[in-house]
């Protein structure tokens, strides 16, 4: 059960924890876009990836995430990586290749697989950094702020962000509930770890039904409690804790913008450091 909680908020007091959630959200989006840039040569791509990986590792260190935690969440990815490799190897390609008993294994196939794997690792690492360093509620405030312009084209931004924050709010509660029900059913002889497929399905049913029922009951109670306190989604509301831009937010954003700008420049000018050095991969 504790593994499911991977990437949940961990209350440290780091630089990243203190940053404004909006800064973090904007930076995450910018970094996510950068991950998907493709430069003019393979060597250049790997070079930029190396830089980004180092940067992300530094961020992980700052926010107290251990590499072990990251690898744990990557565990389930092996099957996918293998699948990607097979697909890529079977795709017809061009360029240099290894000849394995008459089968053409293109270098490009391996590179493409590596790109995807590196991108996935970076995406997971970045999201992990965001979610471990930002309280879920702060994150939804940031999201609401970001989606704010959509209000003018009649998108119910407040409702959406309320739904998201309620969903996030109840993840730990539901996990707790799951653990409780699993324990209760274990006391009635259900074995969640071993057993034949038929027993396993039965075990899951004995967990899912009570879980759904309590979730539905809980949402009804919550809706009543909100209405009893006069909740009106269209009402004007103030906030107990206001988000405030600070110097460190400005500096962080400037840094991200510079990084982004630099990448775009490299992309547009098809600059290739390695080609200039006369190096071709």
């Amino acid at each position: 059960m504790k593994n499911i909680a991977l990437g949940r908020y961990v209350p440290y007091d780091s630089f990243l924890h203190r940053l404004d959630p909006r800064t973090k959200l904007l930076s995450l989006i910018a970094l996510m876009i950068m991950i998907f840039f493709k430069f003019s040569s393979t060597a250049m791509n790997f070079f930029i990836y190396a830089l980004l990986l180092i940067f992300i590792y530094v961020l992980m260190r700052i926010s107290h995430i251990k590499l072990k935690t990251l690898f744990k969440s990557l565990k389930a990815m092996w099957v996918m990586i293998l699948f990607l490799l097979i697909i890529n190897v079977l795709m017809p390609s061009t360029g240099p290749y290894f000849d394995i008993f008459g089968f053409k294994l293109y270098h490009n196939a391996i590179y493409n697989t590596l790109y995807i794997v590196i991108r996935l690792v970076m995406m997971i690492a970045l999201t992990m950094i965001l979610t471990t360093s930002t309280k879920p509620l702060d994150l939804t405030y940031a999201l609401e702020w970001l989606l704010h312009p959509l209000k003018y084209i009649k998108v119910p931004v407040h409702e959406i962000s309320m739904i998201i924050s309620l969903a996030l709010r109840f993840i730990p509660t539901l996990l707790e509930e799951t653990e409780r029900i699993m324990k209760a059913q274990s006391s009635r002889g259900v074995d969640f770890e071993q057993g034949k497929l038929k027993d396993k399905i039965r075990a899951i049913v004995s967990l899912i039904i009570p879980l759904f029922i309590s979730a539905i009951q809980r949402s009804e109670e919550l809706a009543n409690a909100m209405e009893a306190r006069g909740y009106d989604p269209s009402g004007q509301r103030t906030r107990y804790r206001k988000m405030q831009w600070q110097m460190k937010d400005a500096l962080s954003l400037v840094f991200i913008v510079l990084l982004f700008g630099g990448m775009i420049t490299l992309l547009v000018t098809s600059f290739d450091f390695f080609l200039m050095m006369g190096f071709v991969l």
Partner: peptide, 10 residues
């Protein structure tokens, strides 16, 4: 028997 055991009915 857990606290609020009625949650285990299914």
């Amino acid at each position: 028997v857990f606290q609020f055991p009625e949650y285990q009915l299914f």
